[in-house]
Design a binder for these strands. Structure first.
Lengths: 174, 174
DNA sequence: AGCAAAATCACCCGGAAGTATGAATCGTTT
DNA sequence: AAACGATTCATACTTCCGGGTGATTTTGCT
């Protein structure tokens, strides 16, 4: 009786180890019950095989082999279920819609270009004449001229085309 | 004797199954020898345990438990080794060095812009004056003027700045 | 309230840009 | 050889651009 209890304890111990192993691996996996159930079933099967094969006496090795196979399968199944997928990084070419132009404010500050001057610069780079710019901004032609003159000074340009080129390089206009 | 051979046959059969199982799984994996070796080692261990534990008589269940644990571990190890990684696609932002400008030849053809005119256009967009362009191309100022006039016609532009703007949109210049 | 920077406008002038027209030269195609 | 387009150059004229100077108004900040 005591002996039998001892054996049972050892078996329980093994069971505990197995369950612990599983728990640790799955943790927040709610399929724990399923695992427990299947393990219990396995142990029943084991006991059944034991009883059955003892009658057939010396099939001991067969028994061991079956156990080995069974638990190998169990291990594989466990691993399949419990391992998190090995992630593989695959670089995939993606079209990046070009960024919507960010004004280079520091350069603006540095050159001392005012808001109005920037407006004139933008319209200039769009290909408008001074007269057209004046019309768009509701100011006189002379005003546009003074703005553009200051602009050329600040950008160190002699012509409007040069000013546009430099401003584009400084990212003041798209 | 015959009986022993029978047992051996059964054991061999199990071994064959195991090996077959592994072969099927790994197939073109050249680590087959390693697996075979480790399995053989396991079976040796098994036999040793068998002999040893039979002396300790009724530790049968402990034996079974150990086998179970061992082969569970084997199964897990096998699965780990043999499963191909589950691939996960992760889009990763990659800097694309901007393409080095490709001339839009079809548009050139369509508009009937000549080689020389393109040269003038490029220098214009660089901010040069007609006089400077004439100097760079070793031609007279008048020549540059005629080229630019034709250019404005073909590009349907009234001013050089407008021509530059349109040409950039048509990818005739960078 | 007062100051500085920004924005507005004006006038003049020289030069650059653009238009119109005509023409010579050269290489390719038919 | 003739035709064509590209390239070259010229003259004359108009329009636009940019420089220089000065002035007034508006706005933001202290």
């Amino acid at each position: 009786m005591v002996d039998k209890m001892g054996i049972l304890n050892v078996k329980n111990h093994i069971l505990v180890i197995q369950v612990f192993f599983m728990r640790k691996a799955i943790l927040r996996n709610r399929q724990l019950l399923l695992y427990g159930g299947s393990l219990a079933l396995l142990l029943f099967l084991l006991r059944w095989l034991e009883l059955r094969l003892i009658i057939f006496d010396h099939s001991f090795e067969v028994y061991i082999g079956a156990i080995a196979l069974l638990f190998t399968a169990l291990g594989i199944w466990l691993a399949q279920k419990l391992t998190r997928p090995k992630t593989v990084l695959v670089e995939k070419q993606v079209f990046v819609p070009e960024q919507p132009f960010r004004l280079n404010e520091p350069e603006m500050e540095k050159l001392g270009i005012s808001r109005r001057e920037l407006e004139v610069l933008e319209l200039m780079s769009a290909g408008l004449s001074n007269q057209e710019i004046a019309g768009k901004l509701f100011v006189s032609l002379n005003t546009v001229k003074t703005h553009s003159s200051r602009l050329f000074e600040k950008l160190d340009a002699k012509r409007r085309t040069q000013a546009i080129e430099k401003a584009k390089k400084l990212r003041l206009i798209p």
